[in-house]
Amino acid sequence: MKLNKKLISSMLSVALIGALALSGCASQSSSSEPAASSSSTSSSSSSESTDYPKSAMEFIAPSGAGGGWDLTIRTVAKVLQDTSLVNVPMPVTNNSGGGGGVNLAYMQTQEGSDKLISVYSPPILLINLNGSSEYSYKETTPIARLITDYGAFVVPKDSPYKSIADVMDALKKDPKSVKIGGGSSAGSMDHIQFLIVAKAAGVTDLKEIDYISFQDGTATAQILGGHVDLLTTGLGDVQSLIESGDLIALAQTASDRVGEGALAEIPTCKEQGIDVTFENWRGLFGAPGMPDYAVDFWRDTLKKMTETDEWNAERTKHGWADAYMDKEDFESFLAEKNEEYKGILAEIGLLAE
C-alpha cells in the first residue's frame, strides 16, 4: 500500500511538471503572435508606399507648345523616363491662357489629386499680384524648384538696334518709339523683366512703353514678321532662332554668360552698363491638397533626377542654371519672391488694389 502511495505521488509530480511545461509553451506561443502580426502590418504599409504611382500622370504646361514651360516639363518627363526613375506614362498637355491663370483655375478643380503636376515660374506670383488671377502659389502644392533660365531681348537680323543700349537710348527720347512684344500678359514676367532692365538703364515713363502681349504662342512669329521691334522672352524659348541667326539677341539677364555656342556669345545687361539681373526660375507644383505620399515620392524622385548625367546634359544644352530647391526651402523662396515682385509692381503702377 505504501508503494502505491509513492507511485501515485510520483505520477502526480510528473503530471504537474508536464502541465507547467505546456503552460510555458502556450505563453511563449502567445507572446510571439503579436510580433508576427507587427511584421505583417509593417510589410503591408511598405507595400502600399511602393505602389505609387500606379497609373499615368498628368503633366501640364500652362502655355502653348514650344515655350519655356513646355520645354521644361517635357524635358523632365523625358529624363525621368530615360533614367527609369518613373515607369508610368507622363504625357504632357498644354493648358494655355491668362498667362498661366487658366491652368491655375483648372488645378483648383483637381484638389487632392495625386496625378497632376504642372510647371510654373514667376507668373504664378505675378498674375495674382497684378489682378489677372485670384489664385497664386498658395492654392497649389509646391514640390521643388528645378532650374533658372534667364530673360533675353531679341530683334530681327535686319533691326536698326545693335545693342540693348540702343534700345534704351531710343526709349529715353520717346517711350513710344520701340514696340515691345512678349509671350506673357501685361504685368507678368516678359513685361516685368523688360521694365526692370529699362528702369535700371534710366528710362522714365515706364507706363508709356508699348508692350504687346502674345499669349497664343505667336510671339516669335510676330518678331520675325516685323510686327514688333523687340521681343522680351526666355533665353531657352528662342535658342534655336538665335542659333540659326534668324534672331539677334541683344542681351540676356544673367550675371554672367551662360550656355554653349551661340548662347554663350550673348552679352549680359551688366556687360553693357545696365547693372541688373533677372532670374526666370522654374519649378513643379502639384494640385492643392496633393497627398503626402505623392509629395514625398516626387520630392525624392526629382532630387535624384537633378543628380543624373542626363539631366545635367539637358540643362547645359538649354543654358539652364542648376537651381534645385526642395519643398520647404522652395516655399520660403516663393514667399520672399512674392514680396519682392509686389514691390516691383507697386513701383511701376501695376499692383492690383
Rank of each mutant, 00 (worst) to 15 (best):
M325I: 06
L235I: 12
K317R: 13
D169K: 14
E111T: 13
G99L: 02
V86D: 03
K199S: 09
P34S: 11
A170Y: 03
S44G: 10
Y120R: 05
S47L: 07
A144K: 03
L22G: 15
P288I: 11
P160E: 13
S29Y: 13
V238E: 02
L171W: 06
C25S: 12
E310W: 03
S159Y: 08
A249F: 02
L250Y: 03
G68F: 00
E58N: 12
I196L: 13
G286Y: 00
A198D: 03
A294W: 00
K6W: 12
T306D: 03
I147Y: 00
S121T: 10
T141P: 01
D237W: 01
D216N: 15
D322K: 10
E111P: 03
T308A: 09
Y341R: 06
L241S: 11
L230T: 04
W320Q: 04
S38R: 13
S13I: 14
I117N: 01
S47M: 06
S188P: 06
P89I: 07
L241Y: 12
K162E: 12
L85H: 08
A201Y: 02
E208C: 07
G226Q: 09
N94M: 00
L302C: 09
S63A: 12
L16E: 11
S84T: 14
S177N: 10
N312I: 08
M305R: 06
L146T: 02
A15E: 07
L16I: 14
S9C: 11
L241E: 12
S29R: 14
G100S: 08
L7N: 11
S42W: 03
L345I: 04
N103W: 05
L206G: 04
D256N: 12
S133N: 11
S184I: 00
F285Y: 14
L16S: 14
S38W: 09
E353F: 06
